[in-house]
């Protein structure tokens, strides 16, 4: 089953460092310098306390929270929420996997995919999938 190129993420001052790190294969999340909580999607202002936040490198590991395969798309693709090992849950796509074999709670790991403009985008695949 082939994959389509992903739509490019709109660039903004709040995404630049994430994209730069992604180009080096590093996955960043943001954590509050005041309340110490990590969050997703990354933003300059902590969504829990309003504090200042900073980037940190994350493990890129997590588990499937929910997913849906859009069968009417050609080719079909799987939208998902993945709960990161660090805590927050993020929207993503599950790639290199048989959708019928996926299950909520399944361990997944990050795998980068290039969007149509070349920007690396964080997707996930089952953790037992060979690298």
């Amino acid at each position: 089953m082939g994959e389509s190129l992903l739509p490019a993420p709109p660039a903004s001052p709040e995404t630049a460092k994430f994209v730069a790190a992604a180009r080096e294969g590093r996955f960043l999340i943001r954590r509050c310098t005041v309340c110490a909580k990590p969050h997703w999607y990354p933003r300059a202002i902590c969504p829990f306390c309003g504090g200042e936040t900073q980037w940190e490198e994350a493990t890129g590991r997590g588990e499937l929270y929910a997913f849906s395969t859009l069968m009417r798309a050609d080719p079909p693709y799987t939208l998902a929420y993945v709960t990161l090992a660090e805590g927050p849950t993020m929207m993503t796509n599950i790639v290199d996997a048989d959708p019928a074999a996926l299950a909520i709670g399944q361990p997944v790991r990050i795998v980068w995919r290039a969007a149509e403009d070349g920007t690396p985008v964080p997707c996930f695949t089952p953790a037992d999938q060979p690298t």
């Binding site: 993420p9 997703w40 929910a66 997913f67 849906s68 859009l70 939208l79 929207m91 796509n93 997707c123």
Partner: peptide, 18 residues
């Protein structure tokens, strides 16, 4: 949220489906 979601193609049906 656009930068963090648009690439993953949440079209409506698949968001409700989750």
């Amino acid at each position: 949220e656009g930068a963090w979601e648009i690439p993953f193609r949440p079209v409506t049906a698949n968001v409700y489906a989750m």
